[in-house]
């Protein structure tokens, strides 16, 4: 990185670290932090959308649809999440490949499951065997993203379902008295008011989502946990210009601090958001705000 890094052995402690911490692999490590933040930025809205759809389905007046919505919420919540993560990544991958297999190779007659193997024709492989490396990596990331969204969608569905039921009944009755249809009262009365009831649950969920990101490692991605293990391990002078002992403990300490920082920042921001959302609501908090202003 810097010009004086040519001969690390001759450097003082500070200069040595400035060189060591800016090596190519370390830059990949820093990039992995953005991967985590990117995952959070994409998963949160997608999971929220899934949750909204899930909650709407669970509230449906059409029984089978309502049962599907409730089952989605119940199953995901009753089982350790990590099991879900590990299940969905394989299951989704196989589902995609199977669908492509059916579409692209209709002439294929052999069974897909042969003993212990899952075999699809070469054209149906995802990603294609000839695809460049970055496609493989982003495909894995994409699978992880869907998995996170499905699991957190169920959690969000549960929160939103509760929030929709927490909106005072009188509000809906008023809407009906004004002659609004079911759909109108849902979108114009229920949805704008439910957020204040949903926010405590959703902010809890956001914290949980932050803390779930290291599970990316289990899904086989080169995330921060992967790099911390790789970079921290003992390095001998034979293979690197920067030999050091087993520093994995320090790398994980850095990750721990990173996550604590994320939590703290989120806490402060969510607190502010709650203040804004409470404004003008028919709740104790809203009433207190109104009185303080008057």
């Amino acid at each position: 990185m810097f010009s004086y890094c040519a001969d690390p052995e001759s450097l003082g402690t500070i200069a040595w670290f400035s060189c060591f911490l800016t090596t190519g692999v370390h830059l990949s490590f820093y990039l992995a932090f953005f991967k985590v933040l990117g995952l959070l930025a994409v998963t949160a809205p997608v999971a929220l959308a899934f949750g909204f759809i899930g909650a709407m389905t669970a509230r449906s007046h059409f029984l089978p649809l309502s049962l599907i919505g409730r089952a989605y919420i119940a199953i995901v919540r009753g089982v350790p999440d990590i099991a879900f993560f590990m299940f969905f990544v394989i299951a989704l991958d196989q589902a995609f490949e199977w669908t492509r297999h059916k579409l692209l190779c209709p002439e294929w007659t052999q069974p897909i499951r042969q003993g212990n193997d899952f075999i699809v024709c070469a054209a149906a492989k995802l990603p294609l065997g000839t695809a460049p490396q970055w496609v493989h990596e982003s495909y894995a990331f994409f699978l992880a993203l869907i998995t996170f969204s499905i699991v957190f969608g169920a959690f969000a569905a549960n929160v939103l379902y509760g929030a929709m039921r927490a909106v005072p009944r009188a509000q809906i009755e008023t809407a009906e008295a004004y002659g609004m249809t079911h759909r109108q009262s849902f979108w114009r009365i229920l949805v704008p008011q439910m957020w204040v009831y949903a926010l405590p649950g959703l902010s809890n969920l956001w914290m949980v989502l932050i803390k779930a990101t290291p599970l990316l490692f289990l899904l086989g991605l080169e995330d921060i946990v992967y790099w911390a293990r790789e970079l921290g391990g003992t390095k001998t002078p034979k293979f690197t210009d920067y030999p050091h002992g087993d520093w994995r403990m320090w790398y994980f300490l850095a990750l721990l601090i990173f996550y604590l920082g994320c939590t703290r920042v989120s806490e402060v921001l969510l607190e502010r958001l709650m203040k804004r959302l409470t404004h003008g609501q028919a709740t104790l908090g809203g009433e207190a705000q109104r009185k303080a202003a008057a």
């Binding site: 290291p214 994980f252 990750l255 939590t263």
Partner: peptide
């Protein structure tokens, strides 16, 4: 902080 990182 995540339990996962705490374990590590």
């Amino acid at each position: 902080s995540p339990l996962f990182i705490q374990f590590f």
